[in-house]
Design a binder for these strands. Structure first.
Ligand code: MN
Ligand code: MN
Ligand code: ZN
Ligand code: ZN
Lengths: 137, 137
DNA sequence: TACAATTTTATAATGATTACAAATTTAGAA
DNA sequence: TTCTAAATTTGTAATCATTATAAAATTGTA
């Protein structure tokens, strides 16, 4: 909470109630929620909350490089406060999205030399939990 | 043309005029067009063409694994008939999307063992053409 | 307190995609 | 060839995510 506020301040974002809530949530969760997920999560706690505010806050955070967007499938844009270089694994059974790191830098195995600003990668498959469930049936 | 028709037939898709045109285009282009790009490209040649048909054809092709969707940024879904495992490079200056291959299999450098169905990766940066233009100014 | 700037909110607009049902085309039986 | 059923295409309307806009509420400061 205090920590969340400090990070926002340090990046020139004044820590309004909504911003602290949303950014705090993104810092602590690993679920890669969509804008709508975030809206739904806080709607009861902050009844006045507007979907527009969620989008506004997310776009401010993105602007200041405090969150990244994750694009796995068409439509759905997810948000992530984990800013280390990493990719994502989406389970095609349960739909969960988790972080995925590489044992080697992707930069180094690209077939072309290019000026690179960002790398994202997404893997689809079956998570270990769903796999276990499948095997026990 | 004959080739395009054969591939469609082999995959159980009857080669209607629209399907041959759209799939043929996807086979020959490397631009990774959106549904709308495809619609715009053929609208004058096939005046009756409907956007719905473009979506129908694309979803049939996807179903039969003749094309893949490419998701780089939110909104835009692009289509690709290159079915070899590869990733994409999007130039942040000119917006072009090109294929990108790796010198090593991504599978092998994932930090976790997982059942994998699909891998996609997207790199953003500055293409060599835009880089040259920049340096000459 | 008073006032300007910032932030939030509700509502409307936009753009991509899907749903739906009518119109057209195609393929095969008679 | 003609007829008919199935497949395909088409136009329109609906839906969903996101952005635009302007009014309302909040905040910081004189
Ligand atoms: Mn992540
Ligand atoms: Mn490609
Ligand atoms: Zn799972
Ligand atoms: Zn470029």
């Amino acid at each position: 909470m205090e920590q969340t506020i400090n990070i926002l301040k340090k990046h020139g974002i004044s820590p309004s109630y909504q911003r602290v809530k949303i950014f705090g949530y993104l810092m602590e969760t690993k679920t890669h929620p969509t804008a709508y997920d975030i809206f739904a999560k806080f709607k009861s706690e902050i009844p006045s909350l507007s979907k527009t505010t969620v989008y506004n806050v997310l776009s401010a955070l993105k602007e200041k490089n405090l969150v990244n967007e994750v694009h796995i499938e068409g439509h759905e844009t997810r948000f992530d406060a984990e800013m280390r270089q990493h990719g994502h694994f989406k389970c095609s059974v349960c739909g969960q999205v988790s972080d995925l790191f590489l044992t080697q830098d992707l930069n180094q195995i690209l077939s072309q030399k290019l000026v690179i600003q960002d790398i994202q990668f997404n893997v689809t498959g079956i998570c270990n939990q769903c796999l276990t469930l499948q095997n026990n049936n």
